[in-house]
Amino acid sequence: MKKRKVPLRKDIVTGEMHPKKDLVRVVKNKQDEVAVDPTGKMPGRGAYISLDVEVAKLAKKQKTFDKAFGIKVDASFYDDLVAYVDHQQARKELFGNDA
């Protein structure tokens, strides 16, 4: 069986390349609304961040998505992002890579 190529994406906070399934996409739409995109298919400008709570907290501290999207991102979005990443990280530890 032929080995499939694993799609890689760059983590916007650390600058490291990771497999796409180990990252979460954050998207900004035309109305300048920023949201977490768990499916990876929402329309708009996307940026990726690792499923690591420390990286999410660093993004909040550095206001990474403000710089990436060129808009003022609400502080509550960063809190939601940290909570989402924490939840996904816990799922991964509990269920392994199948989750």
Rank of each mutant, 00 (worst) to 15 (best):
R9T: 05
H87W: 03
K21A: 13
K92G: 03
M17I: 08
E93W: 04
D74N: 13
A59H: 03
A47E: 14
K63F: 03
N29P: 08
H18Y: 15
K63E: 11
S50Q: 13
D80W: 09
K63H: 07
R91H: 07
V36L: 15
K5N: 09
A99S: 14
A90I: 04
E16A: 11
F65H: 13
I71K: 03
G70Q: 09
A99I: 12
P19D: 15
H18T: 04
I71N: 03
Q62E: 13
A90L: 04
K28D: 09
R45D: 12
T39E: 11
A99L: 10
Q88W: 05
V82L: 00
R25F: 09
E93A: 07
K57N: 00
K41D: 14
V36T: 14
M1F: 09
I49S: 04
L94K: 15
D22S: 07
D52V: 00
K61V: 00
N29Q: 10
M17L: 14
Q88R: 06
A56P: 01
M17D: 10
M1I: 08
E93D: 06
K61A: 01
D22T: 04
L8H: 13
T64D: 06
T64I: 09
P38G: 03
F69Q: 10
D52Y: 00
D66E: 09
N29E: 13
L94A: 15
D32V: 04
K72L: 03
R25T: 12
K60G: 00
R9M: 06
D98V: 13
S50K: 13
L94E: 15
A90W: 02
D98M: 13
A68F: 15
V73R: 05
K72H: 02
Q31I: 08
V24G: 04
K3I: 07
G96L: 12
V6S: 12
L81Y: 07
K92H: 08
K41T: 14
L8S: 12
D98K: 14
I49C: 05
E93I: 02
D52G: 00
H87K: 14
E93S: 11
T39A: 09
V36Q: 11
D79P: 03
M42K: 15
D37G: 10
E16Y: 12
R91T: 02
A99P: 03
H18A: 09
A99Y: 15
Q89Y: 01
V13G: 00
K63W: 03
Y78Q: 05
D11C: 14
E33K: 12
I49M: 06
Q62M: 02
Y84R: 06
K2W: 02
D79G: 05
T39D: 09
A59Q: 04
D32Y: 05
A68W: 10
A90E: 11
K61S: 01
L51N: 01
V73F: 05
Y78V: 04
D80V: 08
D37M: 08
